[in-house]
Each structure stands twice: as structure tokens, then as C-alpha cells.
Write a protein that binds this DNA or RNA. Structure first.
Lengths: 137, 137
DNA sequence: CTTTCATATACGTCAATGCGTATATATAAG
DNA sequence: CTTATATATACGCATTGACGTATATGAAAG
């Protein structure tokens, strides 16, 4: 039978212990976002973004969905009430950080006029989610 | 003038991303505790405990007080409302974890009969704190 | 099938971290 | 001063993690 194994708390916190990953989570918020937006807004090599997204996936904090060429990422609440509460609180906290506000503003701007960004030509826009999918709430 | 610099969020989460450090924080709770109790309850080499306590100190999550030969550690709430809330929530979460409950039970036991533990002969007992010292609440 | 585009992974390097062992430091006791 | 006790730090080693660069994969277009 399926034994309810203890959630990996350490891995969860480790995933939150990196600036780039926090920026990614902040951009996702309650939206499902295409990787190309992350690359555009965070800058730097695309592989860097992809590696951090993989880390978040391995920690069970985000999930990915393929849509033809594009990959969409969204936050998924961990299967643990404690982790879920902390993640939500962290996301709220990030909204007050200056860097994070700037990132979000740039995302909004990019979404309004994607044609101005070479990387975003024809890119699928973010999809507003009703509520962050949560397995415990 | 003293500029309010941004709190190091990443360092905060990194400090929480280790099992031994979470066990230490769980044992402290709202008490000020002598290092010898940590050594007794967590087991393993004393240097390991000391190193993790140093890490928590460097992250600003605990503070140390010397009382003759003994060092007492307590949790100090970070100078940031967001981090404080998350730390409190984490401490509450830990109380529900099995390993953490066992640790706390062992601490209680050790405090009731310190004479049974060679390491704790004459050790100063934990000191209940009125409330976790918090700089932002 | 070949090319193109979006994304993921492999590789090599370097810094950070965790651990056990040994040693240093600080205080108290004799 | 010497010794004993409590705690912290230094050292060497193994692992993890972050990075840039290069390459692989997967899907669509020609």
C-alpha cells in the first residue's frame, strides 16, 4: 500500500534558497508562463533558466506543460500543508521586494507588446490560473 | 547614515535547508538552551553541532550567550517581517514532524533527570523565554 | 528528410557545504 | 601554573550546486 512518506522539508527550503529561483517563482505567481518570458526578463543564458526550473521541478514546487514548441511552468503547492503555507507566505513576501516588483512590471510590459521583443515573437501569453493548484487545501 | 539594506532572503532559506539545523531550531523553540543538550540529544561529534550553530548565527537566526563554561543558544526573529512569519510558521510545522517530536521528548526527559546523562552533569537547564525576541513585531 | 526554433541536458570548472578528526580557545578547578 | 571541561575552529576530503559553453532533444515548418 502507498505509505505516506515524510515530505522532504530540506529540499523545499533549499529550492527557495537561491535568488534566481525566487525570481522565477515570483514571475509565475498565479499564472502559467512560457519559458521564453523568463529568458527575456531575467536575461543571461537560457540554460541557466532551464537548470533552475529543473531544480524547482525536482523539488516539486513547479510543474511543466508542453504546448508544441513551448513549455509552460506554473507553481504547484507542495503535498504538505506546512510547505504550502510557507510557499504562499514567501510569494506574498516577494511582492514587496524591489527586484521582484521590477521583474513583474517587465513581465506585464512584455505581455502587452510582445512584438517589441524578438524572443517573444509569437510566444504564447501567460495564462491566468484560477487559484494556485493545491493538493492539500 | 544607516541605510536599511535588503535582508538576505536566500541565506535565510539556506539556513533552513538542513535537517540538523532544523532539529536544533526545533529544540530551541522558545527556550534558551545549553549546547550540551544538543550534543546529548542529536548525538554525533560535538563539532558538528557547533558548526551548524555557527551557520545559524551567521544567518542571524540564533544568538548565543556565554555563562561561564556554557554557551546558551536561543532563536532570534530576523529583522524582517516576512522572514519572521516564515520562521514562526516553520517552527510550528516542525512540531508536527515525528523526528522533531522525539527530539523534544528526549529534551524534556533529559531536563527532568540530567544526572542520568554523563554529559549533562551540572549542566544549566534550559531557560523558558517569555516570547521569542522579535525585532519587528 | 532537413532546417529551425524552443527548451533541456552534458561537460568542465569553481565555490560552497557537510562531515570526521584533530586542535585551539575560554573558563573553572586544583 | 597545570588540568579539566565546554565549545569553537582548522584541516582535508567528498558532495552539491551554480555557472558558461556546447550539444542534444522535441516539435513544427519547408
Amino acid at each position: 500500500m502507498a505509505v505516506k512518506q515524510t515530505y522532504n522539508v530540506e529540499r523545499f527550503f533549499q529550492a527557495l534558497g537561491d535568488h534566481t529561483r525566487l525570481r522565477l517563482l515570483n514571475l509565475m505567481g498565479d499564472q502559467e508562463i512560457c519559458v521564453c518570458y523568463f529568458v527575456e526578463i531575467l536575461g543571461g543564458p537560457q540554460s541557466k533558466i532551464s537548470r533552475h526550473l529543473a531544480y524547482l521541478r525536482s523539488a516539486g514546487i513547479v510543474s511543466a506543460r508542453r504546448e508544441s514548441k513551448w513549455m509552460h511552468y506554473r507553481i504547484v503547492m507542495p503535498p504538505h500543508i506546512g510547505a504550502t503555507q510557507i510557499l504562499k507566505q514567501t510569494l506574498g513576501w516577494l511582492k514587496e521586494e524591489k527586484t521582484m516588483q521590477t521583474d513583474r512590471a517587465r513581465l506585464t510590459k512584455a505581455c502587452c507588446s510582445p512584438s517589441k521583443y524578438v524572443l517573444l515573437e509569437g510566444a504564447p501569453p501567460p495564462i491566468k490560473l484560477e487559484a494556485p493548484s493545491c493538493e492539500v487545501c
